[in-house]
């Protein structure tokens, strides 16, 4: 982290906010730089990477480090862009109208802002996480181009324009399940989180378990990277799985020298039957 300050990478973000990781989140210098540059250039930051490399946690860490509120918009396969802006609850209004509930003529009562709307409407600057944008329909990102560019949208029913009071810091994650449209990509700052190497991984594990026994960590990491290097493995274990495993090993009180031989609790790391077979009887 010290190094980063010396390099002054993207440190000049105008409003004096700069991200340099947190106690709980170990970020590579490249990643920190990309966050700072995205903030400085006022563009959404698109994060890609293997599952389990902490894409979602990044937004939490950024929000925490900058002391800002985090708004999470989790994308599902059925999510529509419109839902992020606002939803006009017509059915509710219909029913209310039928029973003569008071205030039916006030459409604004039935307009509910979505996550994006909430971020725009907020009184202070917030961090907006659009999580797993690739889960949605192929056209989804295109439907948000204008809103993310101009940071405003128009509510047809009430003739109101919702404009961001403070441009939110937008972080978008993608698992690369779908190609994102070019027009959308052009507007983003892109960062690919590489799988952490051993040193960074050690740092990450120590953040979670400060008093982990050095021997245990060493053995577990060796097995872990060994498994990742098996060529035919179907699902490579990720950081979060290593952390779970080390936790299990600690709770189980497994002596460090048994880890390599017995592979205790290996099911925490390897989830597929075929992979288990490979790990137990490596073909080499």
């Amino acid at each position: 982290m010290q190094e980063l300050k010396n390099m002054n990478l993207g440190g000049n973000t105008g409003n004096g906010t700069s991200f340099s990781g947190t106690k709980e989140y170990v970020a590579s210098e490249e990643l920190m730089a990309s966050v700072n540059i995205a903030i400085a250039l006022k563009k959404p930051l698109l994060i890609k990477g293997e599952p389990g490399t902490g894409k979602t946690m990044l937004a939490e860490a950024v929000a925490k480090a900058l002391g800002k509120r985090l708004i999470i918009w989790s994308i599902k396969s059925t999510t529509k862009a419109q839902e992020g802006l606002y939803v006009y609850d017509t059915i509710q209004r219909l029913y209310d109208g039928q029973f003569g509930v008071e205030g039916v003529d006030d459409i604004a009562r039935y307009i509910k802002l979505g996550k994006l709307g909430e971020a725009f409407d907020s009184e202070e600057q917030v961090v907006l996480l659009i999580d797993e944008i690739d889960k949605a329909d192929l056209e989804f990102p295109n439907d948000l181009l204008w809103e993310l560019d101009q940071m405003e949208f128009y509510i047809n029913e009430t003739h109101r324009t919702v404009k961001a009071k403070h441009r939110p810091i937008v972080i978008i994650t993608s698992n690369a399940e779908k190609e994102l449209p070019d027009a959308f990509l052009r507007r983003c700052i892109f960062h690919y989180i590489e799988f952490p190497d051993k040193e960074l991984m050690e740092e990450i594990v120590r953040v979670h378990f400060p008093d982990v026994e050095a021997n245990l960590l060493q053995n577990a990491m060796e097995v872990f990277y060994e498994i990742r290097s098996i060529r035919d493995i179907r699902k490579k274990p990720s950081t979060s799985e290593l952390i779970d495993w080390i936790n299990a090993l600690q709770i189980g009180g497994i002596p460090a020298d048994r880890i390599k031989k017995a592979l205790p609790f290996i099911g925490v790391v390897v989830k597929k039957d075929e992979d288990l077979e490979l790990v137990k009887h490596p073909v080499r």
Binding site: A33, S34, I37, L180, L185, R186, F190
Partner: peptide
């Protein structure tokens, strides 16, 4: 190198 890459290149 890094700044240009994150701005210009949008896929690993």
């Amino acid at each position: 190198y890094y700044v240009a890459r994150m701005i210009l290149v949008k896929s690993e």
